[in-house]
Design a protein around this nucleic acid. Sequence first.
DNA 1: AGTACAATGAAACGAACGTTTGAATCATCC
DNA 2: GGATGATTCAAACGTTCGTTTCATTGTACT
Lengths: 203, 203
Amino acid sequence: MAAAPSPGTGTKERILDAAEALFGESGFAATSLRALTGQAGVNLAAVHYHFGSKEALLAAVLERRVAPVNRERVLRLDALEAHGREPGIEAILEAFLAPAITMDGKSGIRPILARLHSEPIELVRVILERQFGELGRRFVAALARALPGLSSAEVGERFELVVGAMLYMIGGSRETSVLGTPPSSDGETLERMVAFLAAGMRA
Amino acid sequence: MAAAPSPGTGTKERILDAAEALFGESGFAATSLRALTGQAGVNLAAVHYHFGSKEALLAAVLERRVAPVNRERVLRLDALEAHGREPGIEAILEAFLAPAITMDGKSGIRPILARLHSEPIELVRVILERQFGELGRRFVAALARALPGLSSAEVGERFELVVGAMLYMIGGSRETSVLGTPPSSDGETLERMVAFLAAGMRA
DNA sequence: AGTACAATGAAACGAACGTTTGAATCATCC
DNA sequence: GGATGATTCAAACGTTCGTTTCATTGTACT
């Protein structure tokens, strides 16, 4: 029979969706694969068949949402550097922040990102290094070129603050709107973050 | 022999200290009682003898640090209301925030508070209700009296924002200094939070 | 039809978990 | 100094975990 089952509802997707939901709700350690596969409506062994391990599943959950963001970051940084003129700090920061602010919208990945620092530290560190390491170093290098007065170690340190602020913004306790002004649109959030963090980078 | 072992190093304290450290580092679910009692240098069964269960140990860890803060809050609110005149919003918020900002300093409780929302949701909700519920309702009532234009439901909603902002401030990712100005003293932090949140309450 | 391979299913594996038990030790008071 | 209660200890309890195994089903190609 040529009747292909409707795409997007395969076993792998169902596992990823359930993992995203449950890891976000209860955390990685507190979520059992039995509860996860039960919610997904798949067999317990399917997790190891398709992903290899529970930790590899977490990596896949992160990758599915983070990889498109990082791809867009690379495109934007490439475009900036193709201009021939060295890009300014604001432009670099916007290239880094805008994809995360605007593309991360609807999925259940944000509580996971917010809780990443609570989970088994070594595993998460390795995952983030693999998905983020080279990209981060490219942005640090670009910022260092735009900030000739700062050592590249100092630029790296300050860039970690940028990452921390971004993670809090996109993953933080935002369901209750947050501190200041009303929720505010993505564009406004981005604009304020860029101005704020650019000043910090220059300080 | 009358030589009493130096106080403060009893079995219960050692368990609480180890739990505070490990729950903060790895989270509640990912910390085993065997690792915990190993670090504390006590027998595995001592946890259940002194506390009853792993969850009750978490409650005790929270209580040891949170109870003094809440006691100070009650004292300050009592003092405000004893003046006969209705206290203003800033005074109420300061009575609520100052003990948390100034008294929570050195212990390892802050990463735990920051991660509370990541842990088994039902357990944490029960613990917070018991330690925080009545106190929170007293502050909501005081704020509602100071804000006659708002329904008490609205005051309660906004007060949750105050709690969220406070938790983030005292428990957030502060080891890397944070966003804006340099770390800033407790007094400055308090002053800015009170002004900020009072405006939000009035909005 | 029949072979080859991808995917699913039910069942079990050893390990680690929180918890309980009961005996051994320690302190305390008569 | 012997009895009493509090505390510690080693060992085991049953359960649940992530993972593995192997038989079974589904799918595609010649």
